[in-house]
């Protein structure tokens, strides 16, 4: 049997990705350097970058996006650890029900959340009007709820996959030696789940940081997430709208790329 060398075999896939992704970044940089209304066409200018960096709406958006990212990721992690404890060792049918949100698009989770807890939603009717507002609230609770609903099951399944019967046996051993539930979590379970959990959480954080369709459906009108702010900029009639939009998106891309490189360094350290 003749074999193509491995380095050649990976070329088609890698080249497509490098060309499309690299091209996208170059395209966005080029758009972001287009001059504003005062400049001449074809000139390179930093007007759009200056405009977004001095725009209070951009800074609010950056803070807001960081807040929902950190909060959703942290809550998902905590919920996942609790849920993993609850479902491990149980029937596969339970896992399947539980895993339902994992392949479901984010947008659909947002739609379901609105139909349930939005104005005139199912919960509103069952409980009377809710005393608090989760949809389009300024703290971004609706967005966070969508991400926790979608990502906590994902993280749970990642954790449960490494919690086999041998971990249970060690926990039993620790328990007979008098370790309480928290001590068992800290010294037996945590060393096992730390790697997959932090790996999964960085992925979740990157997704939340770029969140776009979810805040469009359940997010507040102010502040907006960075991606939605970029959409607004692109849709204004102002001449530098496209350039500002591209600058904002490059900021989100830069943050997620840094996240991804952290992930790689971690994986290298674990190897």
């Amino acid at each position: 049997m003749r074999r193509v060398p491995a380095a050649v075999a990976v070329l088609p896939a890698c080249m497509i990705i490098v060309a499309l992704f690299g091209g996208a970044l170059v395209g966005a940089v080029r758009t972001s350097l287009e001059p504003g209304p005062a400049g001449l066409a074809g000139e390179v200018s930093l007007d759009a970058w200056r405009a977004i960096l001095t725009d209070p709406a951009f800074l609010d958006s950056l803070l807001f996006t960081s807040w929902i990212t950190l909060a959703s990721t942290a809550i998902s992690m905590i919920v996942a650890v609790g849920l993993a404890h609850l479902i491990r060792g149980r029937r596969r049918a339970l896992w399947a029900l539980f895993g339902l949100p994992v392949p479901v698009p984010h947008l659909l989770v947002a739609v379901v959340v609105v139909l349930w807890i939005g104005p005139a939603g199912v919960v509103d009717r069952l409980a009377g009007a809710l005393p608090f507002e989760l949809i389009r609230d300024r703290a971004g609770l609706g967005i966070m709820l969508v991400y926790v609903l979608k990502e906590a099951p994902f993280l749970t399944l990642l954790i449960v996959a490494v919690l086999g019967p041998e971990v249970r046996a060690r926990e039993e051993a620790a328990a007979t030696m008098g370790a309480g539930p928290l001590q068992r979590l800290r010294w037996v379970v945590w060393p096992r789940i730390a790697a997959p959990l932090s790996f999964g959480s960085l992925i979740v954080a990157a997704f939340v940081f770029g969140s776009f369709e979810v805040p469009l459906v359940v997010g507040p009108t102010y502040p907006k997430t960075l991606a939605v702010l970029a959409l607004d900029a692109a849709r204004t009639s102002e001449l530098d709208g496209q350039a500002r939009s591209a600058s904002i998106l490059l900021v989100t891309a830069a943050v997620t790329i840094v996240c991804a490189l952290l992930l790689v360094r971690r994986a290298r350290a674990d190897e």
């Binding site: 499309l20 992704f21 966005a28 080029r30 990157a206 770029g210 591209a246 891309a253 991804a260």
Partner: peptide, 25 residues
């Protein structure tokens, strides 16, 4: 690892950002 990183890095970047950059082309 290098191949996996090159392949998966773009997945983490927001689709709207990649789409906007590609739309330019």
């Amino acid at each position: 690892t290098l191949v996996v990183v090159v392949m998966t890095l773009p997945v983490l970047v927001p689709p709207y950002a990649v789409g906007t950059g590609l739309a330019e082309w």
